[in-house]
Amino acid sequence: MKKTFTKEERLCSKRKIDSLFYSGSSFIVYPFRVVYLLDKTPEGPSPVQVIISVSKRRFRRAHDRNRIKRLMREVYRLQKNELLYEEVAKLSLNLSVAIQYVGKEELDFELLYGKMSKTLKQLANAISS
């Protein structure tokens, strides 16, 4: 599977985002807060849809928020196939995920890579149980 992050993998539907935050489950692996919602009916082109966000309250300048989001997308893109997609394919479910950055300072790529790895492993464990 290609290591890409296409438009079909991004969560854009306002209805799905509202249902995700209204009835989804969540956990925190610092510096990420993850909200996820499993859907039994397979619909849409991608089994996992993700939204990535950084708080404007913590990072006032847009270029800081954009850099963190860019790093988060990259570490997610590099690890999603091995850690998340295999588990979702086994269960034949649709998964909506919101990954929020809740840290107070900008972290470097290597640290974010390790934290995203822990986050995706915990998410895979949560959906399998």
Rank of each mutant, 00 (worst) to 15 (best):
K121C: 09
F21Q: 04
E87M: 03
K115F: 01
V75D: 03
I51K: 09
Y101F: 15
K3T: 02
L93I: 13
P47F: 07
R77A: 02
A126K: 15
K14Q: 13
S26M: 04
T6S: 15
S46G: 03
A126G: 01
Q49E: 15
L111C: 12
L71R: 14
I28K: 15
G114A: 07
F27P: 09
R61P: 01
L83G: 02
L112M: 14
S19T: 02
N81L: 03
E105H: 14
V97L: 11
Y22E: 13
S25P: 01
I68W: 04
A62H: 02
N125Y: 06
M72G: 05
G114E: 13
C12G: 04
Y30E: 12
K14I: 01
R60M: 05
N125Q: 12
S23L: 07
E106V: 13
R61A: 12
K121Q: 13
V29W: 01
V54M: 04
I127G: 04
S129W: 04
V35K: 08
I17W: 02
F27T: 10
S92A: 09
I28W: 02
F21E: 02
Y22Q: 13
Y36L: 00
N94L: 03
E74I: 00
V102K: 13
L78S: 08
E74D: 12
L112C: 12
S23E: 13
K16R: 06
L71I: 01
Y101D: 14
R73Y: 07
L78D: 05
P31F: 06
K14S: 12
V97K: 08
E9K: 00
Y101N: 14
V54N: 03
T6K: 14
R77F: 07
G24R: 07
L83N: 06
D108Q: 14
K40Q: 10
K56S: 14
Y22C: 10
I28M: 04
R70S: 06
N66Q: 10
E74L: 07
I127S: 08
P47S: 07
N81H: 08
V50I: 12
K40C: 02
N81W: 04
L112K: 05
R58C: 01
K7A: 12
Q49W: 04
L95V: 03
L93W: 06
S53C: 03
E86R: 15
A89C: 02
R70C: 05
T41M: 09
I17P: 02
Y85P: 02
I68H: 05
Y113L: 10
I68Q: 12
K104C: 03
T119M: 13
A98C: 15
Q100I: 12
K3N: 11
E74G: 02
I127F: 09
R65D: 10
E87I: 00
E9S: 03
Y85T: 00
S19C: 05
L93G: 00
S46H: 05
L91T: 00
K16S: 09
S96Y: 15
L123M: 07
Y22M: 13
E74P: 05
Q122E: 14
K56W: 04
K7F: 09
K40N: 07
K118D: 14
I99N: 13
V97S: 07
I99H: 08
G103R: 13
V50P: 04
V48D: 11
S19N: 09
